[in-house]
Amino acid sequence: MDQFLQQIVNGISLGSIYALIALGYTMIYGIIKLINFAHGDIYMIGAYIGFAVTTYTNLGFFPALIIAMAGCTVLGVTIEKIAYRPLRNASRIAVLITAIGMSFFLEYTMMFFVGAEVRSYPMILSKKTFNFGDILINIQQIYIVLTAVALMILLQFIVHKTKTGKAMRAVSVDKEAAQLMGINVNTTISFTFAIGSAFAGAAGVLVGIYYNSIDPLMGMMPGLKAFVAAVFGGIGNIPGAMIGGLGIGIMETLISGYGNSMYRDAAVFALLIIILIVKPTGLLGKNTREKV
């Protein structure tokens, strides 16, 4: 039982990171119907920015987090502008291929400059642990969960209480109609990329702390898994992405804890295929059908 609870605790901290990445996927998919493959790599860049800030300056966790988020915001908005905006009216497959191209571009440009080797993250948070009965919770996990929760609350506020949030929701329902209502669609899409990328940047710093190692290809797997999380929750749905992220995180730690950790990744993808086949709209998604 204790081991089970321990795995749940670990799962929640890993899951919060997935949830942060999944939020970006789901918002971007919601607004331009694109699986932004480069999203996982923005998260990788966020981790490297955090690494650079903490290694070369004496700044602590929060400044590093904020600088990483800012850097990723700029990156995300730039990518959208250069690579995706010219394809606004192209086929979805064309945009998807572009996104794959962008992903590879970020990965290998990074590899070109910093090398392929794995770096260990500086210790910016103490490893102090608290015991609750037999369950261990360390400071890092607390920071991770609290940061994720704070950002998600902020996001809910932006989406539901601000004018920009209203514009985001309007554009995701109907781009043309939103435009006719005087909403600047391009600005709104840029803003969505900005928020999504900032969250990915935050997740990058958190994962660096959690796993204590980073490399240029680190974004691939968590990126895909976060996408699975977004699909699991219902793509385009913000609460869905949070639930999906936590779900995948907990599932992974349970499989590692009780089963064969080698099959952990396979299980995530098997889950993806099952959801897509059984309920492609995910837990909280809505159904749409082509009109004949």
Partner: peptide, 12 residues
């Protein structure tokens, strides 16, 4: 790395 960057740029 260069080859993959070339690939990526080609795609985009």
């Amino acid at each position: 790395a260069v080859r993959m960057i070339v690939y990526a740029v080609l795609l985009v």
